[in-house]
Design a protein around this nucleic acid. Sequence first.
RNA 1: GGAGAGGUGGGAGAGUGGCUUAAUCCACCAGUUUGCUAAACUGGCGUACUCGAUUAGGGUACCGGGGGUUCGAAUCCCCCCCUCUCCGCCA
Length: 426
Amino acid sequence: MLTIPYIRDNRETILKRLEIKNFRNPELIDQIIALDNERRSLQVKTNEQQAEMNRLSKEIGMLFKSGEQEKANQVKKQTTSIKQELETLEQNLQISNSKVNELLVQVPNVPHPSVPAGKSEADNKEIRLGGDIPQLAAGSLPHWELAKKYNLIDFELGVKITGAGFPVYRGQGARLQRALIAWFLDENTRAGYEEILPPLMVNEASAFGTGNLPDKEGQMYHVTGDNLYMIPTAEIPVTNIYRDVILNAEDLPVKNTAYTPCFRREAGSYGKDVRGLNRVHQFDKVEIVQIEHPTRSYQALEEMVSHVEQLIVKLGLPYRIVELCGGDLSFTSALTYDFEVYSAAQEKWLEVSSVSNFESFQTNRLKLRFREPGEKRPLLAHTLNGSSLALPRIMAALLENFQTPEGIIIPEVLHPYMGPGNTMIS
RNA sequence: GGAGAGGUGGGAGAGUGGCUUAAUCCACCAGUUUGCUAAACUGGCGUACUCGAUUAGGGUACCGGGGGUUCGAAUCCCCCCCUCUCCGCCA
């Protein structure tokens, strides 16, 4: 969420930039400012009365100590009216605080000035196009057919064990999946990211910290017996490492990478988009997270983008990078680049990564700050994250694009991970 | 699952109703001293909100969380959460 001082000082800029996100609600902003003024005057009054109360209590203590019982009882009488007043004030202050907060969480993050206007996906701006779209031979198959043909993934078996959207990888399919995960992690480590293997379930506080609660509750699997949530992304446990943390400026940037399975209920998603690996309830993903100094976060974003890009290039997949327009930008993001790979048999672009700068929108809620030498107060850090990469759609594109009549060719970078001589699935 | 112990600043740790403005030690920062380092000494050392002028300097809250008793709570009472130890179970 945005900070109140920022809203107070930048009302016009915020309103103007939020229009890019198709968010027009000046009343909300003005209400926040008005409520905050009210809150502050309540706080001043409350603090004054508290100070008076403290003074009187101290006086009573002193009087009792020196044996002046009567005087003490007299002062005691004075406290009753103040006490009553204080009770009301404190209640109102609490109400005021929660009202401001309630409104504050409804304000989306302010997009970066470079974000193009637009309503939907169609208005996203293509930044780069790379790789060659393969000309598949006649009779080429979509990945779910290939998965069956080579016994790589069994979707029906997953239905039996768990339900739709929980594929079972086996044999070479399982091996290829593991190879991709290992290679991604190794590439990320080489790029300076520390590898994290976090818990796959998180408590309420963590889910709140990253904003997945209360709004996106329906997206997560809830383990009711212990009140834990299955993670929809590694972003939650990894980012929460730094909840309520004050870093030193020299610790920045923090760079973490994590492989985790991800669990998403995807309530309401049906139809042909969910075919095969296109949309599943459990999938593997390797995530990268950076915590950076506000003055360097956009540099970090570019660095993450080129890092993810070279992963796709090394795999040999045709891809495009788009900058999301205001309408397609998420509630929490200031600037997002999406990566899509081309799945040749489906003749479709599939989103495989989304790299974003959240600026201080997440860290404000997380209370993730850093101490700048010479600064009196800690400052909010910036957070960025992205997938590097989401496995199922990469797998889908690999299978489809690299199919030949003889079998599926495994990209060279994965050879060391596939076992000796294992360069083709046949 | 059963039994017990506990949760206090960055860390250790004292504090059972008002000389607490949370002692003390360690760590850290600045300074003094000093061939250098170290030691010693002096001072500083939390977070949030708020008043003030983005100063100086104040005020308030915070001792796991939430209630309660009281003029006054880290301290007493109630509820909840968490951690540790032992036993049981277990890859």
